[in-house]
Write a protein that binds this DNA or RNA. Sequence first.
DNA 1: ACGATATTTCGACAAATGTTGAAATATGAA
DNA 2: TTCATATTTCAACATTTGTCGAAATATCGT
Lengths: 114, 114
Amino acid sequence: MKKTDAVAALAALAQDNRLDVFRLLVQAGPEGMSAGAVADALDLAPNTLTFHFDRLRTAGLVTVRRDGRSMIYAAQFEQMNALLGFLTENCCSGAPCVPSAACKPARKRAKILT
Amino acid sequence: MKKTDAVAALAALAQDNRLDVFRLLVQAGPEGMSAGAVADALDLAPNTLTFHFDRLRTAGLVTVRRDGRSMIYAAQFEQMNALLGFLTENCCSGAPCVPSAACKPARKRAKILT
DNA sequence: ACGATATTTCGACAAATGTTGAAATATGAA
DNA sequence: TTCATATTTCAACATTTGTCGAAATATCGT
């Protein structure tokens, strides 16, 4: 990951509501979550939410797809991993102290428990 | 680490020059680096640099001490580790996928090789 | 086609951000 | 004390950011 991308990703996560959105999407897993569901969960105005989704999407941390009249947003785990990789590399003076700081979606317990 | 602190740390790192400053301080190790040395290395105006140091310091990512007429800034590895911990936790839906994403200063090769 | 639901677009706005130049402060050397 | 060095403080400024309300767009059900 390039420095530019890291700055973009960091900036995308460096905001209260946006960090909440991303965390929620991460918990939702790869299937994602509708914009409305996120709006309900976090009590955010739909247009405000669109603004934040755009930021996250531009930073590559989120993807969208349409499902009927809903827009389904999903966390991009790879990008988040890339960011963690960048941070750990740089945090350890180029000599990574953590072999693989991989981030996978939680084992889909949602499928089973819900 | 609390969400508030994470947002602060992310915001502190989410800026080109500031990320450069922090990376430089990380490479410098726990002994740190004078403000002037950082200014020279990154070609930043001293007052601009003070502004960025303040941000990093407020976020807990950096500490200062005076040495003669110089101010020595040093990276706070613990805080960076805390941030990485927060991110990996949340990135993995509360079930951390990486046991310990620890970040230590690079083994002080500077002492030997320079 | 019509109405309802879901989301985005647009225009506005206060607040925060990053940079600059000039002046102030602090330390050390002569 | 006086001068030079190192850094901070202050006041500006253009730009970006986050939020809001109102209107537009898209899809679905009838």
